[in-house]
Simulated scan of single mutants.
Amino acid sequence: MTARNLTIHGRVQGVFFRDWTVETARSLGIAGWVRNLPDGSVEAHVEGEVGAVRRMIAALHDGPPRAAVERIVDRDTETEGLQGFARR
Rank of each mutant, 00 (worst) to 15 (best):
L6Q: 04
G63I: 03
G48P: 02
A3D: 08
D74Y: 05
V12L: 11
Q13T: 11
A52W: 03
G29Y: 00
D19V: 01
A58M: 12
V50A: 15
M56L: 09
A86R: 12
L6S: 07
R18Y: 08
N36I: 11
G84S: 02
V50R: 14
E78S: 10
V69I: 07
M1G: 05
H45Y: 12
V73D: 15
Q83D: 14
M1N: 04
L82G: 01
V46P: 07
G48M: 07
V42C: 03
R35G: 14
I72Q: 05
R18T: 05
G81P: 02
G29D: 02
N36S: 13
S27G: 08
A31C: 13
Q13Y: 10
E43K: 01
N36Q: 11
A67P: 05
W33S: 05
Q13W: 10
P64T: 11
T77C: 15
V34C: 09
V42K: 00
V53P: 05
E70H: 13
T7F: 13
L6W: 03
P38R: 05
R11F: 11
A52D: 06
E47N: 03
P64L: 12
F16Y: 13
V46F: 15
W33Y: 02
M56Y: 04
A67I: 09
W20G: 04
V46A: 15
A31F: 00
M56Q: 02
I30W: 02
A68M: 12
S41I: 09
L82P: 04
R88P: 00
D39Q: 07
E80N: 03
V12I: 07
T77I: 08
V69F: 07
A58R: 12
R55Q: 10
D76G: 04
A67E: 03
G81W: 06
R26T: 11
G84M: 06
E78H: 01
F85S: 04
R87K: 15
R88W: 06
L37G: 12
T21F: 05
R66H: 09
V50D: 15
G84R: 08
P64H: 11
R18D: 10
G14E: 13
V34I: 01
F17H: 03
L82R: 05
E23P: 00
L60N: 01
V46T: 06
I30M: 03
R55E: 10
T79F: 03
T79H: 03
L60D: 03
L6F: 08
R88G: 14
P65Y: 08
D19P: 00
G40P: 07
Q83W: 07
R71S: 15
V22D: 06
G51R: 01
V12W: 06
E80S: 05
D76Y: 04
T79A: 12
D74R: 04
R71D: 14
P64Y: 12
L28A: 07
G48H: 03
T7E: 15
L60T: 02
A86D: 10
H61E: 13
L37Y: 08
R35F: 03
V69Y: 05
D74S: 10
G10A: 13
V50N: 09
I30F: 01
S27V: 02
R75K: 13
E78T: 06
F17D: 09
A86W: 00
